[in-house]
Structure formats: C-alpha cells, structure tokens
Design a protein around this nucleic acid. Structure first.
Lengths: 341, 341
DNA sequence: CTGAAAGCGCTTACAG
DNA sequence: CTGAAAGCGCTTACAG
C-alpha cells in the first residue's frame, strides 16, 4: 500500500487509520489521512469485500421502468441505498423469467447483500437458493409461488374496495370496471374487491360492463370502445380503471369521445401516476404507496442484517393499505330524471 | 475449492476447466463441470476481479427516470449490458453534483469498467480522474466543461431546424416557440435553430411568441396561458414545443382550452415520448434517438477496451442526427381569409 | 498503540 | 495436460 509507505507506517496501521479504528493514535491517523489525500487514494472495495465477506451492493430486478409504481419503487430504493453509500444493480427484465434467473445467479456471484425482485413471479427455486447463501431477498408486486422470501404487495383487493365504496358514497349505482386479466394477482384481487363491495351494497353488476384485458396501453382503446357501446344504454355513471397501462390510451380516448368528466361519467384509477394531476380534470386515484413499499423492502434486505441467520418459518406477505386520493374526476351522481324536471 | 476436491483435481485444474481453458482434457473438464453442478457452485466474481483486474460492472448516473429520453437510455444501456452479462449500477442524481461525485468515487472503489454520466454537467475533475485510472467515461445529454471524456448529445440545434422547416414546408409563417432556459445546452441550441431557420426563410419572429422556462411540467401551464393570450392576435398557426417536461401540462391545457389541433394550431415537439402516440391527435415530434445514444455510449465504454490506453487527444463530441416523426398534430396552413370566401 | 503474518477465493505464470 | 506456488489489495486475529 503506497499510502502506508508515504505515511511511514505499516499497512496494518494505515488500514486501521483509514477504517477509523479507535485505537489508532490521532497523530498517526492524521499522517495516514494526509498521505491518502495526497495520493488520492481510493480503497479497493473488491479486496475489502473479499476479505470481510461483506458487500455494499444491492440488486433490483424489475419488469419495466415505465409503470410509475415500478419506477417510483426503483427511485426510492436507490435513494435509500445511496444515502447509506450502498450501490444498486439494476436489471429491467420485461417479465422474462430467464433474465431474472440470470440476474439472480449474478447476485450470488457478485455476493450481493440483498436483492429485490418485482417481476415474473417465477424462479422460486433460485430465490430460495439466494436465501440459503445468506442473501436476503424480497419479492414485490407479484407473489412468487413457493418462494420462502418475504413479499410486499399493494393491497389490490382493498384498493378496489376503497374505490368502489368511494363511488357508491357519491351516489353511483351503475359502475363499470376495466381491469387486468385474472391470471395476475392484481387482476384477480381488484375484480374481487369490486364484486364484493357492490354485492355488499346490494348493487347489481352488469356483466357487459366489466372488461378485462392485458396490462397494455392498447387495451385502453379496445376497452374504451366496448365501454362506450354499453355506457349509455346501461346508464353507467362511473368507471373504475384497474388497469393502469390501459389508462394511457383510455383517458385520451374518452376525452376524444367528448365524454364529460365528471358530469357524465366519474372515473377513478386503482394506481396513481403524476400525469393524473396534469389531466383535465385531474383524475382521482388510489395510491398504492410505492415509496413505502420500497422503504419496507429496503429495511428487510438491509445489509445490517447481513449474515444474521434469517430463520424464515414462512414467507411473510406484507400488504400496504392503499390511500384514496380525491381529485376532480369523481362527482356525485345526478339523477337524469330529476335534472329534466 | 470444494469443486476441485470432489472432482479429484487440483484447484488450478478446476479453475481452468470452469474457465474453459482449451488445454484441459475433455474428460477432466467433464468431471469438474459435474462436480460444480452437484455442489451448485458459483464462482466468486469479487475474487476473480481482484486477481484479473477486470470487472464486469458498468455504471450510469442519470438525472431522473421520468423523462422518456433518459429512461430509454437507461433501458437500452442495461439491455445491451445484460446481453453480455455485464452488470449496471444505477444512480438517480436529480442533477445533484454531489450525488454524482459520490457515484464517481464509488466507481473507482468498485473498479467499474466504465461509467456514463447524464447529469449535472459538472464534476469534470472527477470524471478526468476516472479516465486517469483506466475507467472509460462518457457524458451524455449535457456537455461537461473541461472533461476529457467523450460526450454524446442529441443534435438539439438540428432537431429545432428540422421541426421549423417542417412547419414552414406546411405553409406556416407565424410560429410560436416554447422552450427551456438558455442556461441549458438544449435551451440555447433549440432556440438558435428556430431563429436561424425562420431567418433563412425570411420569416419574422414575434418576441411575444417565444416563451422560455424551466424544464418542469408546471411551466406547461404558465407557458400555455401566455401562449393563448397572444395566439389569436398574432395569428399564430403553429407551435414548437422544445421543453418536454412542459408538454406534460401544456397539451392537456390546450385540449382543455378547446384549441383544435391541427385545424387551428399545428404542434410539434422536439423530444418524443410514447404518450404522444396515444394523444388525440397523435403528436408529431422529433426523435432524438435515445436508443442509439445508449448504443454509442455502450460501445465507447465497453470493457473489451478495458486497459487499452485511451489516448484522448481531445474529447470527441458526438451529435446524433434527429429524425422527424410525422403524426397528426401538424396540418398545412389554411389561410383564414380564403376559408371565408 | 503498532506490526508481521495469514488469508479471503480466485487466476496464472512457471515447471514438469 | 496438470499441479504447486505466488499474488491481487485488503482486514484482522495474534503478538508485542
């Protein structure tokens, strides 16, 4: 170590000084620090990690960066990590299990301290292998069947309940629902929340008014057209959008179709996004708290717990309570007949 | 090494077999591979990197993940890296030079193979320090004064020229401009492109029709209002939006204001985004080719060039030629008087 | 309070 | 074709 030579001490001492070992003499520490500064010394983390068996790198594998929930998770996560000088390795997997698998293998080769996976919902075997090696893992957004890792998900069911109740409380009785396919955790749970709440209020659900499809923008147009066909005749006065991707095309489509919001139609979305506040009118939504999800995940995989035997007696499934964000796209139901008199 | 023991060879041989050294006997390689498989062996990259002085990690520091250009750069970059089993460390800096500095220091401690910075435009000293240590660097989006690194930027000037020419070719003579502050490379260059092109066509620019502001969504509303005030009296028939962030609020604002696009007003944006295709009507834009920028950047910092003495005689400044993407928000100019007859 | 020595898990000349 | 040995740049018992 060059620094040691310049400071005129052994490399043990130099190392200790740099690492802030309390038993080093203040004066010699000074000398070492000065030498280090002069040489513009930067310790080699690889060597340190190899020796200490501790690494300061975290990993996150995520489906995409476009969905605002996912993006906010990544941003908050990397912010928290940065605050503690931890690094984060990113992989955008597009829901591809193979990408994810590769990432997880890499995680063990690079000895990551922890990994969070918001992805395909597969690879439980690999996920378990990580835990076995002492790498803490948490899965987000989707349940991964058979994994022993903790998981953090929005409370999809509750978010749907919340939205439906909100609409009902505003006097709406005929409510339409645009959601995601039932093969997804979120698709199933939001639909159930809607059904249960309507049922509990003795409200009827017209089957022709629920439209389920892929989580893709283009489904917004498809669903929008179907919705329009039945809207008037079914006297629908409110719409729940449980398919965020679809909302990207759905909202412009509705504006284009001259549907007046909220006068003619109230709308609420089950996932929030910045642009909802920019829309005219601003769109009410359910905030599923991506930031808090990231915080929880960070806490769980924090390296301070590194090496701590993580005796998982069972995967804990955290569900964050959603929050209703009222903006201007939901109005109270005006009975058309009364309006006529 | 456990694998060596199981396979009954020395660890030298095991290592060579795993690393695909050609002079290992096929049969012994088989044995080693089998043992490795059985033990579920994963090599420790840290140790390998320490020895070989080669690392498979790249870094990217970026202002934010919301801007679609930046997001696409990150996505493409990580995709390319993933294809070659390279890892990417991400830092979202929010344009904060200190964050960036910390990231750069970390880059040398972690011995990253290469780093790309699309950020504050500062930290030239640290950037140069990286190059001095053999870490290849490239700066993107903004020029960083005094850095010896290569830089890759959209050709802001040309994108503005392209848009203006397009509008002029459609018969527009009164054109308004909403852009970014002149303190930014992009703000200056887009404005100049607009001026030069108008001037070259002997077209007059009404100073009350150019609005410059911060790259923030809220400026969209501000600029939109100012624009509306002058639009009719100045007989403006087309608008160039050179401030992408502002467009988020500007476009909804214009729709809300019942401006009919493109009949009353033609619009073209100098930065593309997915949602422009979902808008009604789809918004014409200039594609500044974020994907190609990422590809170029990746090529430059590729570890295959690691260790190669990077004799930089001067920072090369790459500018990618922008592409006009015609959609439906630009129409040809209809002379109002003629329409009346 | 400081130093000499061992060792983290690999790779790679150097012999054979 | 294979093995013994050295060494990458650190940290950390163990002595002193």
């Amino acid at each position: 170590m060059q620094v040691a030579a310049l400071a005129g001490v052994s490399k043990s001492t130099a190392s200790r000084a740099l690492i802030n070992d309390p038993r080093i003499l203040p004066t010699t520490r000074e000398a070492v620090l000065k030498a280090s500064d002069e040489l513009n010394y930067h310790p080699n983390s690889l060597a340190r990690s190899l020796k200490t068996k501790k690494t300061s790198m975290l990993g996150i594998a995520i489906n995409n960066l476009q969905n605002s929930t996912l993006r906010e998770i990544v941003e908050r996560f990397q912010e928290l990590a940065g605050d503690e000088n931890l690094q984060v390795l990113l992989s955008v997997t597009h829901g591809n299990p193979d990408e994810e698998a590769r990432f997880l293998d890499m995680a063990i080769e690079l000895q990551l301290a922890g990994v969070i996976v918001a992805g395909s919902g597969q690879n439980s075997d690999r996920l378990n292998r990580l835990s076995a090696r002492g790498i803490s893992t948490v899965s987000m957004i989707r349940l991964v069947e058979g994994a022993e890792a903790h998981s953090i998900l929005p409370d999809y069911y509750q978010s749907s309940v919340l939205a439906t109740q909100h609409l009902i409380s505003q006097g709406h009785k005929k409510i339409s629902f645009i959601g995601g396919h039932k093969i997804y955790t979120s698709g199933r749970e939001t639909l159930k929340g809607f059904y249960d709440t309507m049922f509990a209020s003795n409200l009827r659900i017209d089957q022709s008014c629920v439209h389920l499809g892929p989580y893709e923008p283009s489904f917004g147009n498809v669903a929008g057209k179907k919705f329009l066909e039945t809207m008037r005749e079914s006297k629908v006065s409110a719409l729940i959008v449980a398919n965020h991707e679809a909302s990207h095309e759905l909202l412009p489509f509705l504006t284009q179709s001259k549907i007046s919001i909220p006068d003619e139609l109230s709308i609420i979305c089950l996932e929030d996004a910045e642009w909802f506040t920019w829309w005219h009118p601003p769109i009410s939504a359910i905030n599923n708290r991506p930031k808090e999800m990231a915080e929880l995940a960070f806490e769980i995989i924090h390296p301070k717990n590194y090496g701590v035997k993580n005796v998982i007696t069972g995967a804990e499934n955290f569900r964050l309570a959603p929050i209703l964000v009222e903006r201007e796209s939901v109005g109270s139901f005006k009975n058309p007949r009364r309006a006529k008199k």
